[in-house]
Design a protein around this nucleic acid. Structure first.
Lengths: 270, 270
DNA sequence: CGTAGGCTTGATTCTTGTCAACCGCGGTGG
DNA sequence: CCACCGCGGTTGACAAGAATCAAGCCTACG
């Protein structure tokens, strides 16, 4: 991570330990000042409880506003004419939903919780105001969208060119990295609240086959599961099996050049 | 498509017949004024010839500037440790490349031509200026990015939940719709300059299997191929086989509400 | 005229899907 | 308090879709 005079180290440390998962996530891209952190916290300050298996946004209807997932887990998915469904993405705490979807007449997929969750509804015009006024926040939101898109591409690679083992291993590694980016992976362990059917719908497999592969992973001591909590025992083994390369997550910060450019914008805006 | 007083019908007609494929594509989202059309044409006025099988942007290095594909065809792809490759997207004329990638330190995938092509390099600061000054152009670029993302999700659905026939049929339908959106499909026919290996690398199949399915399609008179030009003989049959629903391409225009909102911005900007 | 890349085809293998049954647990209602 | 129910996980037997291996063919091109 590049530090730059514009943001003091103390602010950086603060961001990395911030209780707000969005601030933590964004801090992997750019150092946010304390003011910027407060603004993001305020932007995502509402708190709404959503039960498990509830659709927040549904295919075919005009998307409702922007929101951030605060706690829990949600999936983007699409149901097919033949009854099947495909999960495209997992939303974990700190994930923003579709800052730009308002451009579309209707959502082309649904978003639904898989476990009880909490979301922060974000008024669209506040987003507009803040991103216009604070270019670094705007840039970090765009970065977040780029990261999501990159994850979509990586899923395409998984589905197209990895076998069942590789797909599952890759997904587990991805989740570990993402949880770790928001500071929620003590001991390479995280809660995996997904049913095997949900995993199958994500990975283009059947629940039966997912079960068999997980069993194999447990047998070869790659993972361990105790009451819905997953522990990755052999991360290197999993990463190798998956051909996992974390660079697609872009967690290594903005370039010096961009950081400087944004600092310039910041200065001229205020 | 919603017409709105801000843009006269003549301009709409002009956009729909514009020689610039980007203008044509964007006109499916929003009616661009003649001035806006001229600006986009000017923005994409440079012309650079690129041979077949040349990488325009390569994985691991900082992305070069924005460009538009003017003629030909390119693919986004990633090569895997084991030597395989996965194509994620096709770029056809009018496709913009990564208005926002400059945020990333390094590209997570490569972009390369598959046939001789022509591209228009676009200076990033001109994009910034124009999108800031002309919100409708800015919005249409964002729409274009949303559309691309939507195509990524649809590919995930294909790879995850459609069999070989469905995947191929879906891809052909998608290309037909996209070519038709830029006015290049006389008689449901278009040039398909891809080798079967490239198709396989897109669809998560082997070249051999792609060959067999195409043979079957020809046999059942779904398609016909004569010297590298493909004709879809039975579009309904293909769409049904694929479970194809074009709404993910979002070609049906912006909502009235958004159109009005952008007109407002336009007015206040000038 | 020779060659390489791409297309075509057949024989065979194997990964994954399908079908079916059973288990165990948590919730619910009698 | 207990029987019932349903969902999710587990396992086995079998089927099928796609991969693999291998060879021949055509054509554009040097």
């Amino acid at each position: 991570m590049q530090t730059f005079p514009a943001v003091p180290l103390a602010a950086l440390r603060e961001a990395r330990n911030n209780a707000n998962p969005l601030v933590r996530k964004l801090s992997h891209f750019i150092g946010l000042s304390l003011v910027e952190q407060r603004l993001i916290e305020e932007l995502t300050s509402t708190d709404e409880v959503v039960a498990a298996d509830v659709d927040i946004s549904v295919e075919g209807v005009a998307p409702r506003g922007v929101f951030m997932l605060r706690e829990g887990m949600a999936v983007r998915y699409r149901t097919l004419p033949n009854g099947g469904r495909q999960i495209m993405t997992f939303l974990i705490p700190g994930d923003l939903c579709d800052v730009h979807v308002f451009l579309l007449q209707q959502a082309d997929h649904s978003i639904g919780t898989v476990i009880p969750s909490r979301i922060a509804a974000i008024p669209r015009d506040r987003v507009m105001q803040i991103t216009a006024r604070y270019p670094r926040i705007g840039a970090s939101f765009l970065w977040s969208a780029q990261q999501e898109e990159s994850m979509l591409r990586e899923r395409i690679v998984s589905l197209g060119r990895r076998d069942a083992r590789g797909r599952i291993a890759h997904l587990l590694c991805e989740l570990l990295w993402r949880y770790s980016a928001i500071g929620r992976t003590p001991d390479e362990m995280f809660r995996l609240p997904l049913t095997q059917t949900e995993l199958a719908d994500t990975l283009g497999l059947t629940p039966v086959h997912v079960n068999r592969v997980l069993k194999e992973f447990r047998g070869s001591r790659l993972i361990a599961m105790e009451n819905r909590t997953l522990r990755l025992l052999d991360i290197n083994g999993l990463q190798e099996m998956a051909g996992f390369d974390s660079s697609y997550l872009h967690l290594n910060g903005a370039s010096m050049e961009l950081t400087r450019y944004l600092a310039g914008l910041e200065a001229s805006a205020s």
